[in-house]
Write a protein that binds this DNA or RNA. Structure first.
Lengths: 146, 146
DNA sequence: TTTAATGTAATGTCAACTATTACATTAAAA
DNA sequence: TTTTAATGTAATAGTTGACATTACATTAAA
């Protein structure tokens, strides 16, 4: 199972906002064209980012801006916002191990902390990257000779 | 999107092999009863573990054993074996960013190494745990007073 | 030859992802 | 005030993967 493309799309959205925000109004159609997915998908993700307090979206007139400085928006913030986990658990544990079996009775207690450590390792690495890092690298690409 | 329960089931399987292997023959029915899923699901996972060279399965007579010392079988080995990733990629990147857009043209190049680092952080943590760690903790639970 | 396994094909249900159409709502601008 | 160009969201659909289940051919030991 892969992590949904909503995550990379969300990063792409922020990158467009940063790169084009001064020149263009950032609408769902504009974004859909750069990202190449349906505008309704974009609006859904924008809605999630808004609910997470990461962006502001103007109704009626349209347009989107970051709700705080982009060097304070980490990959982890975005990851949480687009709602990729059920109950915050990266691993889907099989639901009903047999309580009458010594292993079935204890497997959860024994595994849980290890799985948490793994999830944390991933989340901590996600916290190390910000939208600003991406925007900066995009700028560098644009300035570099083809 | 969560990581499939095939992973925790596989760990459970190894735990049963280690805990009960000397006393019982470890069949798919035996495992299915401890794990509480259909025996065919177990056989599918056993087949994946076998293909990855982690276990040996006896046809006809039945029974399963680890193919090498369990302190040399890491969570990462199991994770790879149960085939959770497409092309080894944890993140599903949106497929067709617009090549005519400066951001769309560069987003992949800019993001890929960051996503790899995140994936690696998770995988490295997975390599730190072995089946032996789990088996040992199960033993401790069994000895402890209720 | 019997028996108790594994291996696997076929089928089904369900949930999530992504796409798409349609339209009510909004707020600025004309 | 009307027009216009957005957003918000419901409804529907196709596709895929997870997991469940039945059925049965194959295997190898007893």
């Amino acid at each position: 199972m892969q992590i949904s493309s909503r995550f990379t799309i969300a990063i792409h959205i922020f990158s467009c906002m940063e790169t084009f925000g001064k020149e263009y109004k950032i609408t769902s159609d504009f974004l859909a064209s750069s990202i190449n997915v349906n505008p309704v998908i974009i609006r859904k993700i924008l809605s999630q980012l808004k609910n997470a307090g990461l962006i502001e979206v103007a109704r009626g007139t349209g347009g989107t801006t970051a709700a705080r400085p982009i060097d304070q928006i980490t990959f982890y913030d975005v990851y949480l916002a687009v709602d990729l986990l059920e109950e915050g658990e990266l691993f889907h544990f099989h639901d009903n191990p047999n309580p009458n079996c010594p292993v079935g009775r204890n497997i959860h207690a024994v595994l849980d902390d290890k799985l948490e450590h793994i999830q944390e390792a991933m989340e901590n690495e996600m916290k190390r990257y910000t939208i600003a890092d991406v925007a900066k690298d995009i700028q560098r690409c644009l300035k570099a000779p083809e």
